[in-house]
Design a protein around this nucleic acid. Sequence first.
DNA 1: CAGAAATGTCAACAAAGCTGACCAAAAACG
DNA 2: CGTTTTTGGTCAGCTTTGTTGACATTTCTG
Lengths: 190, 190
Amino acid sequence: MPDTPDAKVAGEAKPVGAGRQLLFLREEELRLAQDLLFFGYRDFTAGPDAILAELGMGRAHHRVLHFVGRRPGITVGDLLAILGITKQSLGRVLTPLVEEGYVTQTPGRNDRRQRLLTLTEKGEALERRLFERQREWVMRAYREAGPVAVEGFRRVMRGLMGPEARAQLDRSLQPAPRPDAPQPKRRSAA
Amino acid sequence: MPDTPDAKVAGEAKPVGAGRQLLFLREEELRLAQDLLFFGYRDFTAGPDAILAELGMGRAHHRVLHFVGRRPGITVGDLLAILGITKQSLGRVLTPLVEEGYVTQTPGRNDRRQRLLTLTEKGEALERRLFERQREWVMRAYREAGPVAVEGFRRVMRGLMGPEARAQLDRSLQPAPRPDAPQPKRRSAA
DNA sequence: CAGAAATGTCAACAAAGCTGACCAAAAACG
DNA sequence: CGTTTTTGGTCAGCTTTGTTGACATTTCTG
């Protein structure tokens, strides 16, 4: 089956009959998924990792830059919920990022306890650099696989996420909720 | 079918025209890919992680169990190449796995320097338990997404892998190479 | 004002990577 | 045969990024 290096990676070439969606999940196919996720994720992160290493940073810094860039003005608490780590762990990467001028903290206008996080120009520049590296990589994969495969990829990856992550993802697709507008007493969803 | 809370995650519903495969890669779509991979991979590994934690093990142990299970009789060197770590790092998880009876080492028959690695019954049982947990998770995602999406997922994940990982994947799909047959002087592909 | 919430910080620990140095057994080479 | 290379293991020390637990500060809220 792995005849040509690319064509139908390891999927049965059987015409996908209507009702038999339960049979195509044989053990080998699941094991293949494990392999794909391990190797794929590892190589997906390798590019940025190399850039970060030169700057004495790690993947955790990238994640902060990424999610702060995605939701400028995000609160520390929300960032913690997204990353799913403790504030001590976050502090260890966030504090240096602030000290070295990649991220700014500004007190919230409604709630001055909050430190709203935003990328500085320097932070945006680095985030963009990391993004571009990763973009090339993903673009290659997308191009090779084609638009239909990309849509399938998204659907499956989304299915691999737990309900909380899905909610967070949906939220991050919303048009950021006016960080200074009077907000209706949000209960932290953790 | 999954038009319910899932349909078209965040993809443009535009009919995928023929030649415009270069345009559909807008920035937001790439950022979505980053999010999907982060959350998806994290939640994909969460199940096994929980089981492993009870046994005082980590993800690294799972990887060893997985790849030894996949290629019984694998040499330490080959396992190192697959995992892409140093032998010291491997030693820290492999030695305990051997000591606690999950993995056996038997000297190679052609090359008695080699320690061919195989799962014991205990090792197979644990690997299977981890596998089943992950299977349920992946199955849910596959079912929700449908067979066509699964094929797309595979194609994209494979594209995200670097050339070396692809080669290793192909090799692991081969019918394991008779660990005791006289082998034709393999040059280590590091 | 009292208490809860948002954030920060100190200390200690763990998992899983890394480098460098060094050793032994077995194979391969000349 | 003797030398060199390969395979694998081990010790020691360092790094990143996660964890708990305890405690302080500021600010909001009832």
